[in-house]
Design a protein around this nucleic acid. Structure first.
Lengths: 239, 239
DNA sequence: GTTGCTTTGTTCGGTTGCGGACGGTTCCGC
DNA sequence: GCGGAACCGTCCGCAACCGAACAAAGCAAC
């Protein structure tokens, strides 16, 4: 069976054989914490379905998202950069499943295969750009653009056009108030880009959503397609 | 002579011998552009003195900073991640000098030495955290905290307590208006944390500046000291 | 179909920072 | 010592967003 995870799917046969024996299928329920800040990380996780957020937990109890991982990559990229801990939390934001591999086994494989190393480091690059785009989006882009960007990033990482999110959740991810999210959703919905229902948002037009996201969306995804391969499986939904 | 650049200084003797012959001293004048977006990058640059910003250039002509490199690292980390181009611009924000190495020579050295690879990838990790902290700071932290963070980051990367910056420049780096910078500087100065003169800011108390920066400052620097070594050379200025 | 919880819609006043502009000051070159 | 440029301080009206709160609507369980 072909892996749903894009990174695993992109492996050469030899690299696949190197990792395969160490991969273990796991469930990733909603809210499951993959990594706690400063805690040693035992497994790298390749997500097949679902979404995982990397967030900073603030003293005041709030959380701010800095990165998003889905079937495009692994959690956490930092494991490839010589560290077993990170100062952020990783948790499942949309339930799904994936495969895990013990960190020592991952390290051995990466040490043994230059092509594997190259592929994984390229993913790190796309992730770095994604975080940089988050920084850019957070610097002044209006809530509506940030919302559009986030919806697109979610959309990129799953099949179909229905996204499961509440306003409350989006408000945390975007670092804004919930009413701000409500207003932004109405605007996008009024323009016909999405259709919002209780706990669910349907993407009606990716193309126009990308316009709405402005420059906050694009660079990370371009980088991914350039360095690794197609991000979305299916065709774009019609404009 | 011991390298001023922290990464080069941290090299083992063998790794130093590997890179040394390929290093070429260069001047880095103010405003010098090291990397243009999407343009192929011929050299990796290890900065000895001065400061280099990684910025996103917006359509409207504005620029937003996503990362800062000084004697702590190299420009650009992305070269270690299997790409020869990045979607951002790198330019010298404070003049200085450094050493450059042609990318193929860098790649050869990194391929040949696992310890070199490890060290450099650890630097990538610290840079990734720095960018993540930028995202966090940009998400709602008031201008004053962001200013404090930026001053500390500059201070970390040079000797002495005098920083050469104008309000105008800071406003670009922080993504706020110049008057907002002026007000924030007055606040910090009023509290006795800094002393501002025309085109110059003197750090009077690092410790209290770190307080003022809140949670925006710290994680990236902790990560650096944990993975690589001391960031600042000299002792902290008295509180 | 009623109860209770979750999610969504809306309101109010207040604050921060924006865009733009103007005047004052320091510094540099001549 | 003078002129000009760069830099700093301040003001205005305005828009976005915040914090808090409350009301309505969808959904689920019984």
């Amino acid at each position: 069976m072909r892996h749903q995870n894009r990174l695993l799917a992109a492996l050469s046969e030899a690299d696949g054989a190197l990792l395969g024996p160490h991969l273990e299928a796991i469930d990733l329920p909603l809210g499951h914490v993959l990594v706690e800040p400063a805690a040693e990380i035992p497994y790298a996780i390749f997500i097949d379905t679902g979404l995982c957020s990397m967030v900073s937990t603030l003293d005041q109890g709030g959380r701010i998202e800095v990165g998003l991982v889905g079937r495009d990559g692994m959690a956490t990229p930092a494991l490839l950069l010589g560290t077993d801990t990170i100062p952020y939390q990783l948790f499942m934001q949309v339930a799904g499943h994936g495969h895990r591999i013990a960190v020592p086994a991952l390290r051995d494989a990466v040490k043994a295969s230059a092509s594997l190393r190259t592929l994984f480091l390229r993913y790190v690059q796309t992730f770095l750009v994604q975080v940089a785009q988050t920084a850019i989006a957070n610097a002044g882009a209006p809530a509506e653009e940030r919302l559009a960007r986030w919806l697109l990033m979610y959309h990129d990482r799953q099949d179909g056009d229905d996204l499961s999110v509440t306003h409350e959740f989006l408000s945390i991810m975007l670092g804004v108030r919930r009413p701000t999210v409500t207003v932004a959703i109405h605007t996008l919905e009024g323009a016909g880009l999405i259709r919002a229902r209780r706990g669910r948002i349907r993407v009606l037009s990716r193309a126009r959503l990308e316009e709405a996201a402005g420059q906050t969306y694009g660079p990370a995804e371009t980088e991914y397609e350039r360095l690794i391969g197609p991000l979305r499986r299916s065709e774009d939904s019609p404009a």
